[in-house]
Simulated assay, not measured.
Amino acid sequence: MLVVTRFRVPSTDADAFRERIELARATLAAQRGHLDSTLGRNVDDPELWVLTTRWENVGSYRRALSSYDAKLHAWPALTLALDEPSAYEVVEPGVDLNDAGARSIG
């Protein structure tokens, strides 16, 4: 699964944000199921940043976010994210896509 998290950061806060987001990135990278991550800044609007992470599955991602380390080191930066959907399933040929709706847990 792919997570695309965007941030709007005033240029005056860029250095502090970069330190916080790198700590968040390292913390998430240490969690089980994390595959990789990339931090980027928009070339046309330097106040727009993006953190992209890839995970083995949605469960790994959700468990990582609820871990003690993530709450302590990642959430302070992640709370600055733009309020928009960020989790995506990877679309590959021949693979059924997720259906929106209620799911059975049992």
Rank of each mutant, 00 (worst) to 15 (best):
Y68K: 12
Y68Q: 14
V90H: 11
D96Y: 09
V95D: 10
A26C: 06
V4G: 06
R8Q: 02
R18E: 12
D69N: 07
S60Y: 02
S104F: 13
A30E: 15
A16P: 09
L65P: 03
V91K: 14
G59P: 04
F7T: 01
D69A: 09
V4N: 09
G40K: 01
Y88R: 14
R32F: 10
V95A: 12
D83S: 04
T27D: 08
L2F: 02
S86M: 07
H73I: 01
G40E: 03
L97M: 11
P76A: 04
A64S: 10
D36T: 11
A16Q: 13
H34E: 08
P93L: 09
L80F: 00
T53E: 02
V91I: 15
G106S: 09
W55T: 03
R62L: 11
L72A: 10
R20C: 00
D45F: 07
S86F: 12
I105H: 15
T38S: 14
G94C: 06
A87I: 05
T79Q: 09
D99M: 09
L97H: 07
T38E: 11
R8G: 02
S37L: 02
P10H: 12
G59I: 10
L80Y: 03
L65I: 03
D36L: 05
W49N: 01
R6K: 10
E47H: 12
V90S: 14
L65W: 03
D96F: 08
L97I: 00
D69V: 03
L35F: 03
R32I: 02
K71Y: 05
L78M: 04
E84A: 09
G94Y: 09
H34C: 06
M1C: 11
G33E: 08
A14Q: 12
A30S: 15
L51T: 00
Q31N: 09
L51P: 00
R20F: 01
R25N: 06
K71L: 08
L48R: 07
R103I: 11
L2P: 06
V91Q: 13
R20A: 10
Q31A: 10
S37E: 07
V43C: 09
V4A: 11
P76T: 02
A102Y: 14
V58L: 13
G59K: 09
T52V: 15
S86Y: 09
L35M: 10
V9K: 05
H73F: 12
V50K: 04
T52I: 11
T79Y: 01
P85N: 07
Y68I: 04
L28I: 07
V50S: 07
G101D: 14
D96Q: 15
G101M: 13
G101A: 11
W75S: 07
A64E: 01
A102H: 15
Y68N: 09
A70E: 02
N57M: 05
L51R: 06
E84T: 07
R32M: 05
R41W: 05
A70F: 00
R32W: 05
L48K: 02
R8W: 00
L48M: 02
E22R: 14
A64K: 04
P93K: 13
I105F: 14
A102E: 15
S11C: 07
P93R: 14
A74V: 03
Q31P: 05
E19Y: 05
P10Q: 12
L2D: 06
V50R: 04
L23G: 06
L80C: 00
A87V: 12
R41F: 03
G94E: 11
A24W: 00
